Amino acid sequence: MAVKNKRIRQWMWAPMLAAGLVAVAGLAIAQEYRDGHPDTYVVQKGDTLWDIAGRFLKRPWLWPEIWQANPQVKNPHLIYPGDVLSLAYINRGPMTGAPIPGVPLAQVEPFLKDMRIFDRIDNLPYVVGLEEDRMRSIRGQAVYIRGLGASAQAGQRFAILRPVQTYTMGRRRACCALVGRDKLDYAGRRNDPPYDRTWTEIMLAEGGRMEKLGIEMRKVNAGVITRGEVGGIEAATLLLDDPSYEVRVGDKVVPVESIPYDLTFYPHPPKQQFPYQKAQVLAVADRDDIGGPRDVVALSVGARDGIDNGTVFSIWRVGTNAVDRVQIPERDRDLVGADGKVRLPDEFAGHVMVFRTFDKVSYGLVMDSIRPTRIGHELKHPDATY
């Protein structure tokens, strides 16, 4: 009887600590645990579901599959500090504080609220002037918007956006993906000094064809329309009420999203296997070209490729084509042909989970890593082995 109970306890392991196999009667999943896992764990303030799973399981990103086989937990995103997670059951302790999230929201919320990707921006309304002809305007001051037309009604809220980066895709005919970027000024014009690599674009399209993935825009402020285009005036008046950033002429204007993002993320693998060098890291937020755990990265795939929120990739450093110095000991690398080089294996770097998706680009959070994440790293199935 003791042996039977032990098997049941293994099968009923807490859902957010799932190992990645769908539990069915008679299936033991203990082999998926890390060595030395405890029988129970008390949820702490600051925990995330991914972090908890990562302490005890070899494949923490698959916890939702076991959760679905454990009906005693109605919602894995409503786990509270003080809850006791056990091999056999979840003991609901006093619900103190907020429920723990699937990802650390503090890291992703600025990108959920403030970053967007557009196919084009030349058709958007824009700031054409500022109150008292100022150079910049802040909260409590008026700005004047051209292009809203009759749609501008008093009381409507609009966000002020500024272009940051254009992402494009292209590919060298002879070999491999190119990495570059078109940084934009406030009006959306190219402003790309060669030494500035804060964000980047990646070019992947076949046959040398260039494709624009989208234009990255950052929210800088917001406000309410106080007067439309009336009495021969050709610009609507918007009163700024957001303390974030100063507004200047040329900034773009879009309606405020009522529900801009979803805070519930269920990790899952991509729906398809991508051709090599199709899915890559485009950029690392607020870094030159390198990032690590809890950094936001832009990815070269989006909704048109079947990517949605919660999609998990493994990140890989692409193996180099090294000169075989045993066979060719002296010749300069640039003079060695393909037959004199050896393709070295890709190297695993970590995992990234998508938290906001646009048509051709998505944003993800690096959840764990064993080496730095860099621009141009390859994205594969989360359980890829090479």
Results as ranks from 00 to 15, higher is better:
Tyr261Ile: 03
Tyr261Ser: 00
Tyr261Cys: 02
Asp262Trp: 10
Asp262Leu: 03
Leu263Trp: 01
Thr264Cys: 00
Phe265Gln: 01
Phe265Trp: 03
Phe265Leu: 02
Phe265Pro: 03
Phe265Ile: 04
Phe265Lys: 02
Tyr266Val: 06
Tyr266Ile: 04
Pro267Glu: 01
His268Ala: 07
His268Phe: 04
His268Asn: 02
His268Asp: 03
Lys271Ile: 11
Gln272Val: 11
Gln272Tyr: 11
Gln272Trp: 09
Gln273Tyr: 11
Gln273Gly: 00
Gln273Phe: 11
Phe274Ile: 03
Pro275Asn: 08
Pro275Gln: 13
Pro275Tyr: 15
Pro275Phe: 15
Tyr276His: 13
Tyr276Pro: 01
Ala279Leu: 02
Ala279Met: 04
Gln280His: 04
Val281Arg: 01
Val281Asp: 00
Leu282Gln: 09
Ala283Tyr: 10
Ala283Pro: 00
Ala283Lys: 13
Val284Thr: 08
Val284Glu: 03
Ala285Asp: 08
Asp286Asn: 10
Asp286Gly: 04
Asp288Leu: 12
Asp288Cys: 07
Asp289Cys: 08
Asp289Ala: 13
Asp289Phe: 08
Ile290Ala: 10
Ile290Cys: 08
Ile290Arg: 15
Gly291Pro: 02
Gly291Leu: 12
Gly291Arg: 09
Gly292Thr: 06
Pro293Arg: 15
Arg294Ser: 05
Arg294Asn: 03
Asp295Ser: 05
Val296Cys: 05
Val296Ile: 14
Val296Leu: 06
Val297Thr: 08
Val297Ala: 02
Val297Gln: 06
Val297Met: 10
Ala298Leu: 10
Ala298His: 15
Ala298Thr: 07
Leu299Pro: 00
Leu299Val: 05
Leu299Ser: 04
Leu299His: 04
Val301Gly: 05
Val301His: 08
Gly302Lys: 05
Ala303Gln: 10
Arg304Pro: 00
Arg304Cys: 04
Asp308Gln: 05
Asp308His: 09
Asp308Ser: 07
Asp308Cys: 07
Asp308Thr: 09
Asn309Ser: 10
Thr311Lys: 12
Thr311Ala: 10
Thr311Trp: 06
Val312His: 05
Phe313Lys: 00
Phe313Glu: 01
Ser314Asp: 01
Ser314Val: 01
Ile315Asn: 00
Ile315Trp: 02
Ile315Cys: 02
Ile315Thr: 04
Trp316Thr: 00
Trp316Asn: 02
Arg317Tyr: 07
Arg317Asn: 05
Val318Phe: 12
Val318His: 14
Gly319Ile: 08
Gly319Val: 02
Gly319Phe: 14
Gly319Ala: 12
Gly319Trp: 15
Thr320Trp: 12
Thr320Val: 14
Asn321Met: 15
Ala322Ile: 08
Val323Ser: 14
Val323Gln: 14
Asp324Thr: 12
Arg325Val: 10
Val326His: 12
Gln327Trp: 07
Gln327Cys: 03
Ile328Thr: 11
Pro329Leu: 14
Pro329Asp: 07
Pro329Asn: 09
Glu330Lys: 06
Asp332Phe: 14
Arg333Phe: 15
Arg333Lys: 11
Asp334Cys: 15
